[in-house]
Design a protein around this nucleic acid. Structure first.
Lengths: 250, 250
DNA sequence: CGTTGAGTTGACCATCGTCAACAGGAGTGG
DNA sequence: CCACTCCTGTTGACGATGGTCAACTCAACG
């Protein structure tokens, strides 16, 4: 009897997901209240619904690719998306993981500056960019909420810069685990589980923390050796929160 | 006969800056067209003018500090501001340098998440946050421009994450020099000078690139030794752009 | 039962950090 | 005008953290 995984949030949607399109009322959306859509009233929501195209993406499928015309924005409703930058020689930096409720695809200029693909099966609402911009120009509440989201993302990105530039491997891993736990807790209405699900692989974690897969593996093993964590299938159980918090030293 | 320094942009304003407050019409502002204020029409501009408080900050003075109530936003009109995150043990990560035209102070929640202080003497227009939010709620153009700015900043932050996480010291320094050159060029209307002014010290560059001051110094010396750059007072002359571009490998 | 891919572990090494000494310029006070 | 301090930047010696390369385990899958 395993713990429920965050991706179970929309298991129904995923299992119903044979073709590429999924239908469903925005008013029933499980992530509406944590997404940008919470800025909209009931009647505006039905207008949004006509513009939305909910789609499924199996694991590893690309939502959009760095350099392509940025002609859509997305709200993730289930699953985990990795957003990353590829250097010309193949090195990769993951700049963020988008969880259910997150908004993707804002770009300055007319091409995406980053790539996004599904880590595990994903459901996302897709909006044509020009249509969405038209809507947000007519709805100041939505525009304001988008600014709030962008500001929040900017703060996260800057905190991640401090992580990448100024912290050791052990601090990086501890901070990552605590941060992910916090994000899942928000999605589950405040319940903080001791077990953090890790839908992404070690390579993804490494590329997010600016490390190699070997260092991530070694660091997790060392944390497990000192009883700070317990490595379980699909995730990590945080067995010594105070020590992890001291390492993360937020 | 030295080259003009970017800070000369507003030498008049700075020399007139005896007290803390500077006055001047927004319509005369040298950075208006590259700042968020470009979203406003002539009559809106005079409304903005009544809300703005232009102030001087001598070098090293703080505009705002991490943790303080976020009750103001700023547009830099002259000088360079460093924006940084302090870890509890004193390690510092500079998350960006704000140049004339840049907008500062957007925060999720009601406290600043980062500190900002003047690298060299700075002039900045200060707006009370609640007043500015009221204005932007009434001016969709301004709100939209703010979103554009935040999106642009987010993109820069993510590119910096890739720099911090995945690049060598030499690549970091080369990318930094080329990026700063590009930014000055935009402020000077497209003229790309071979000499990049560095108003910030080596320690600031180190804290921006996730390096130590010694590594920055050594890397610059090595680049100078191979004739890629020439270190001049107050800046660096880029003498081998192709090689620097290859190192930066954008 | 062989193959594949993810993850772990070990040995070795390079890059970059640490510690320390020193150079040069700005400011200060005699 | 000079001596002194302070601060920034440079350079060297050394070492640690984390990267590289390689071998191995294990589970999933045909």
């Amino acid at each position: 009897m395993r713990e429920p995984r965050p991706s179970d949030l929309s298991a129904m949607q995923l299992s119903a997901c044979r073709g590429r399109n999924v239908t469903g009322a925005c008013s029933d959306c499980k992530v509406r209240l944590v997404s940008v859509c919470s800025a909209l009233e009931a009647e505006e929501l039905s207008e949004l619904e006509r513009l939305a195209h909910a789609s499924c993406y199996p694991a590893r499928e690309t939502l959009f690719h760095q350099g392509e015309p940025a002609d859509a924005v997305y709200t993730v409703t289930a699953g985990t998306v990795r957003l990353y930058n590829l250097l010309s020689d193949g090195r990769r930096q993951i700049v963020g993981f988008a969880l259910p409720g997150d908004f993707l695809g804002l770009s300055p200029g007319d091409t995406y500056r980053f790539s996004a693909d599904a880590v595990e099966p994903v459901v996302a609402c897709r909006f044509a960019r020009n249509v969405y911009e038209g809507l947000s120009d007519r709805k100041p509440h939505l525009q304001r909420r988008l600014l709030e989201f962008a500001t929040h993302e900017l703060t996260l990105a800057r905190e991640q810069m401090a992580l990448l530039g100024r912290r050791s491997a052990e601090e990086k891993v501890a901070t990552f685990l605590l941060g992910l736990r916090e994000r899942w807790a928000v999605l589950f209405g405040g319940h903080e589980s001791a077990t953090v699900q890790l839908p992404m692989g070690r390579q993804d974690i490494a590329d997010y923390l600016g490390l190699t897969i070997e260092t991530v593996s070694r660091t997790l093993s060392r944390l497990a050796g000192t009883q700070a964590v317990l490595i379980v299938p699909g995730g990590v159980r945080l067995t010594d929160l105070p020590r992890l918090r001291r390492l993360a030293a937020i």
